[in-house]
Amino acid sequence: MAVQISPSILSADFARLADEAAAVPNADWLHVDVMDYHFVPNLTLGLPVVESLHKATSLPLDCHLMIADPDRWAPAYAEAGAGSVTIHAEATRAPVRTLRQIRSLGARAALALNPGTAVEPYEGLLGEVDMLLLMTVEPGFGGQKFLDMVLPKIRTARSLVRRHGGQVWIQVDGGVDTTTIERCAEAGADVFVAGSAVYGADDPAAAVDALRAQAAAATG
């Protein structure tokens, strides 16, 4: 597994998003949290900002849709230039159709699961996804404490992926920092969303390098 770091602009300065993207040129992705105040109790940004950000950075955008109707909106994010589009299992009503639409538009398709959502019922969808996102906090707000209860689910997900074969990434999002990233990597995660740990640092690029090194050492 190759370690990938996806800094979350949820913890960045929204008034300076282009500059904040430029501060992490060594990142693999730029994680964009889209929230609609329906699926989660927070409102962030949407398609116009994603379209503008796509023009302002060479980093691929990792769009995480925490919205109530992903089946309607997810394809538009792929069309807007997102390199990866994630929909929530708890919100989608037509996961196969939506995931296939995302892929057909040239983006990677991903499925997210909240902390209390078991991964086993979604084993049959592994052939339809490029990535599983396992939330390690309840979605909606940055800066939350990491939930250790998700670690066994990461191990289960990695086991299911190995059994099925293919190249499905396992991403973790929420409370990922220097004190938790090694445990996530050891459990089987290979893509790490980090918000406060990157944008709360004096040197965001150095923070990305430090997190990557820790995760790589843990999977040794």
Rank of each mutant, 00 (worst) to 15 (best):
A217V: 02
P7H: 14
S84F: 11
A201I: 09
A22M: 05
E79P: 08
L132Y: 05
D173Q: 06
V191R: 15
P41N: 08
L17S: 03
R103Q: 14
T178A: 14
T180I: 13
G143V: 04
L211E: 07
A22P: 03
R97N: 10
I154K: 07
F39G: 04
V191T: 14
G106A: 06
D177M: 01
H88G: 12
V49I: 12
G81N: 08
A197Q: 09
Q214H: 10
Y122K: 05
R93W: 00
N26E: 15
V193N: 01
L43F: 09
V193E: 00
E90P: 02
P48F: 01
I87T: 11
F192I: 10
E90D: 06
S58K: 14
V208F: 05
S8V: 15
S11W: 15
M35L: 01
G46S: 08
V34I: 14
A215I: 12
C63A: 06
V34H: 00
T86M: 14
L65W: 08
I5Y: 15
D190S: 01
E138M: 12
S84P: 03
H64L: 06
C63G: 02
A89W: 04
T92S: 14
G166H: 06
D173P: 06
T180D: 09
M149G: 06
L61E: 04
L53G: 05
A216S: 15
S58T: 11
Q167G: 14
P75F: 04
C63K: 03
G124W: 09
P48V: 01
A194H: 00
L61D: 05
P75N: 11
Y77M: 05
S6F: 15
A201K: 03
E182M: 01
G81C: 03
A80V: 08
G142R: 04
